[in-house]
Design a protein around this nucleic acid. Structure first.
Length: 426
RNA sequence: GCGGGUGUAGCGUAGCGGUUAACGCGUCUGGUUGUGGCCCAGAAGACCGUGGGUUCGAAUCCCACCACUCGCCCCA
């Protein structure tokens, strides 16, 4: 072990796992295109004030000091993005995307940084597939975004998913509900755990998903948001549910579903997975109609979600979905060094230019053919092209199929080698 | 930030006070001059997480720290 190691909470994605990533990202990109989303890339680094104003100082990111605030620059500090949405809304405003045909449908892929304590399925750097619809508050946009998420899991072979769904209200109805909840919970204050007593003061809503012992009974009788939505929120929620029912997408209304980010209004949802430890959420999202205004822009409704790539990998593996196979290297070129190595290296280059992936055997000196054959077997090559002294002198190469079949020779000149390989590699 | 668990070669493990730290897998090389998978032989690879301490002697006992891991919190 060397003296240098990974930073806590960071992961190396080795080729085997990386193949899952390729599958997930290719599937997600394809799906996004089908749904009419275009890819956007926004910086990993943003001014801290974007998150102060967008995500909110009362959010857990700030309260728990979860953000990586890295450098001071021109009087404003910079922060590694702890989520995607604020940056995307910032880009929407800054680049005048409100002048595009509305709504604007965007997706992004990349790393997110949160300085939490690592755990199964939770890392300090993780990657998200993030989808947003900006400039429209039709509940049908909520539906589209949710269906995109559900379809992603189905296409990946994970299976059908069930949404946890709630409406978190809006500035017109949420404050009154929160007060009602606070009043209800205050009556039980002496029975609340210290964390929950703290939440009672700071954000009573969070107590709704408390896992402290004894809370079940108290919460069962608690007033829930569903009964206190304003007409606008209630209509929105009802219409969304109707749309989901109409397409047969499974969901469960969960009045305890609460978010740690302040900007969410109306719709909030999550998809829970299995096999990834206590961190069950594969996807989380919701509506943020007030976010654009919070960061200084005109009112711009929006809805979106983030899906955690690492968690999807864990969930797929737990479900027994095998990772895609490594692409085989069809051809290995064996030689005996010297002139033959030179000729083999040139032939390898020639084959690749012709679109045939080729692996050249390496060796400082002469290396036994047996050893090179073993290498070919290990990398699952289909054919070993042998370019030895005898072949070179005769101006030909030996074609040795590994899966059986006769070894033959073909001329090195011209395109005989390419034609033989194309015919035999299927 | 708070709890529990674990740290011996790339991976999985053994050794748990006493000479050059063992085994399996993997890697590399070879098994008569140039042919894979099985088998055989050999090699490389470990400052036994780090730093202190106890002891004639420590991978083995004690302490601290670090890392990883599981959970709380929160989420993806």
């Amino acid at each position: 072990m060397t003296g240098i190691q990974r930073v806590t909470g960071m992961q190396d994605v080795l080729p085997e796992d990386r193949r899952y990533w390729d599958l997930i990202l290719a599937t997600a990109g394809q799906l996004a295109a089908e749904y009419g989303f275009q890819r956007i890339d926004v910086p990993v680094l943003e001014y801290t004030s974007l998150f102060v104003r967008g995500v909110g100082e009362a959010s857990d990111f700030f309260v728990n000091k979860e953000m990586y605030t890295v450098v001071e620059d021109e009087g404003d500090s910079l922060t590694l993005r702890p989520e995607f949405t604020a940056g995307i809304v910032r880009a929407y405003l800054e680049n005048g995307l409100h002048n595009w045909v509305q709504p604007v449908k965007l997706y992004a892929v990349g790393p997110i940084f949160r300085r939490e304590r690592p755990q199964a399925g939770r890392f300090r750097q993780h990657s998200q597939f993030n989808v947003e619809i900006l400039g429209e508050d039709d509940p049908a946009t909520d539906l589209e975004v949710m269906l995109l998420a559900a379809t992603l899991y189905r296409r990946l072979g994970y299976g059908q998913v069930m949404f946890q769904l709630n409406s978190t209200g809006c500035p017109a109805c949420k404050p009154a509900y929160v007060e009602k909840l606070r009043a209800y919970l205050a009556a039980y204050e002496d029975r609340l755990a210290p964390v929950d007593q703290e939440r009672l003061r700071r954000n009573p809503l969070r107590i709704m998903d408390s896992k402290e012992p004894g809370m079940e009974a108290i919460l069962a009788q608690a007033p829930h948001i569903g009964d206190h939505l304003c007409p606008d929120c209630a209509d929105h929620f009802a219409e969304l549910r109707g749309l989901l029912d109409n397409v047969g997408q499974a969901y469960r209304v969960n009045y305890r579903l609460v978010r740690g980010i302040d900007y969410y209004v109306k719709t909030v949802f999550e998809v829970w997975g299995e096999g990834i430890g206590a961190q069950a959420a594969l996807t989380g999202g919701g509506r943020y109609d007030g976010l654009a205004e919070a960061i200084g822009g005109p009112r711009t409704p929006g809805i979106g979600f983030g899906a955690g790539i690492e968690r999807i990998v864990l969930a797929l593996a737990a479900r027994g979905v095998p990772p895609p196979e490594a692409p085989p290297v069809p051809v290995l070129l064996a030689h005996f060094g010297g002139e033959t190595k030179s000729a083999a290296a040139a032939l390898a280059f020639r084959l690749r230019e012709a679109g045939i992936p080729a692996r050249l055997a390496f060796s400082r000196g002469r290396r036994s053919l047996k050893s090179q054959m073993r290498e070919a077997n290990k990398v699952a090559a289909s054919v070993v092209v042998i370019l030895g002294d005898a072949e070179l002198a005769a101006g030909e190469v030996a074609m040795r199929p590994l899966a059986g079949g006769e070894q033959t020779t073909v001329p090195l000149a011209g395109d005989a080698v390419e034609r033989w390989l194309r015919a035999h590699l299927a």
